[in-house]
Design a protein around this nucleic acid. Structure first.
Lengths: 337, 337
DNA sequence: GTGAAAGCGCTAACAC
DNA sequence: GTGTTAGCGCTTTCAC
């Protein structure tokens, strides 16, 4: 018996014919409308099963003007995206929430050279909304995405527009907390390895650092910025050490950079946790992978991811959504400071 | 002057009206047909620019029956995907090649609980083809994807079908090489931490191990399998040590698992590289991140990714494509063995 | 070189 | 509860 369609995928038309009903009824069944008689429902279901029917997504979204897909945009180079456990948590949180919805999530790595293509994709009606996992001030293409579909940013966008949505952690407070922690423990020769100056997260953590220092009347020994990578942390550390006075405490704006700093310190015979207090930021897997374990500022990345997804889902469902969500940070005390 | 469309995105109709030509001509320009007069071309280009026109992807793929999109399917849990640098290389290689094409690539994390959704997506005509980054024998949903669109597998599929395409590294030879290396250096009490028995890569590396052992007439001290994660490597190491005779050499089927093994060895006071020779597999970033640096079997993951993408592109373009590509492996000698 | 017309597979009024 | 009818925005013959 020839059950499968002649060629290509089965269409709604074929299902309707086989079930002895109209296209509309099939559509109703597929879309879960209740206004279908039990007998028709049964017939359609069987036909769908026999033909292995899956609705054509293009046709569906053309007619309904929605795609049931959302994009997770990563404006980073591939190696940074994979190298930093921060992204793993964010993605896991987002995936968890989207997974429970009936949206499909597709990840788009929109590194510099791929951003034009990504922009075209996002503007072509391929998705109903987008989540942007990290944000550089140079990522102006994102504004042009936001013109077309709702966007939720991870972290405060560089320029906040009144209708923006974002979920951030309290980076200023986190930076302040970390720095105050060092000061409270009697350190006065304090340096920092900050994040990149083109990312709000980097800017804010540094702002918190300066706030705490000013408050205590302490002047920084050195301020060098890294790019949130391990090697960037290492070279910033080198610059800090060659800057002049050797610090007795160090605030590093990400755990990964702290790992890079560790290496350079060791090379110079300076033992982290003993000769210099080091505090990181993230509380990602690297903070316990290094030795001595890193005292750090915990940011709830998994939660942040979950929130981002929920906000987008709210927007898409027409529910009232929160424009700005700021998640708290806290110090996790380990061995390095 | 009102240049922007009234509401929503501009359509081909609006562009045509503004340029004073028909829809067909606009379509020709958009699709790069040469049969358009210079004046029409110019007019259309300007209209597109002014209206910020981007063709609707759904409409386009409905009419043309192709999507110009490919899926990168990752049948793994999120944390394993992000935790293993192997995937970073694979994705980078694929992204590089796809990036130069006019296809868009969307990554789909199809963990167990999300596989039904991913399957629906892939069967709904959303993509022209798929690349599967890793493969478990339990991933039967992939067969149903291959029914609908061309699929290229990373690694030999569990059950090879005559029309399958895949790009693999020579895992059997790699396992053999690693084991022979240990034997040549005089080790005789050799154990292995193998990959998961439900993954061809794991099976093949173990096969190579046994081949080399048999050839040399040496019996393994212990064979324990891990799941290609760091913690899996650690617990396998624990089992190896409690199995009986303490090994003087160890072949671990992935660098990440070797890192886990290092930790357990150290806890027991056994120093890798001194008290026990350890050889890994991958030559990923972790092999140099650990101390002592790991001697390992290099597999060209970036190249593998590039090949996978090229093969899919060949298939989609109707060019002859290679069904099976096997890439060579080689020993990278460092400090651990 | 250009336009008219048909149709891709579906949803969504609207009648019945 | 169910079918009929119009499109959704585009590509693609086929005439001219």
């Amino acid at each position: 018996m020839d059950l499968a369609p002649a060629r290509g995928a089965a269409t709604i038309e074929e299902v309707a014919a086989r079930a002895g009903v109209s296209r509309s009824t099939v559509s109703r069944v597929v879309n879960g409308s209740t206004a279908v008689s039990p007998s028709a429902l049964e017939a359609v279901r069987r036909a769908i099963d026999e033909l292995q029917y899956v609705p054509n997504r293009a046709a569906r979204s053309l007619a309904s003007r929605q795609t049931r897909a959302i994009a997770l945009v990563i404006p980073e180079q591939t190696d940074r995206f994979f190298g930093d456990p921060f992204f793993a948590s964010i993605v896991a949180g987002i995936g968890e929430v989207i997974g429970e919805s009936d949206y499909i999530m597709n990840m788009l790595i929109a590194s510099d050279d791929a951003s034009a293509k990504a922009l075209g994709y996002l503007r072509s009606g391929s998705v109903d909304g987008a989540i942007v996992a990290s944000h550089h001030t140079s990522d102006t293409f994102l504004d042009r995405v936001a013109d077309v579909v709702p966007v939720v940013y991870g972290g405060r966008p560089a320029r906040i527009r009144s209708d923006d949505y974002y979920v951030d952690v309290d980076n200023v407070e986190g930076g302040r907390l970390a720095t105050a922690y060092l000061i409270e423990r009697g350190h006065r020769r304090i340096a920092t390895i900050s994040g990149p100056p083109d990312m709000p997260a980097g800017i804010d953590r540094l702002k918190g650092f300066h706030a705490a220092m000013t408050e205590a009347g302490v002047t920084p020994v050195a301020v060098e910025n890294g790019d949130f990578t391990e090697s960037g942390g290492a070279s910033a550390m080198t610059r800090v050490l060659s800057a002049g006075e050797r610090p007795d405490a160090l605030f590093v704006a990400s755990d990964l950079m702290a790992r890079g700093a560790y290496e350079v310190l060791r090379e110079k015979g300076i033992e982290p946790g003993r000769d210099i207090a080091v505090i990181g930021f993230d509380d990602s897997a690297v903070s316990t992978a290094v030795s001595p374990a890193l005292t750090t500022v915990r940011q709830p990345s998994l939660t942040q991811g979950r929130h981002m997804a929920s906000v987008l889902l709210d927007i898409l469902a027409g529910r009232p959504a929160v424009h700005a969500t700021i998640l708290p940070t806290e110090i996790i005390e380990r061995a390095s400071a």
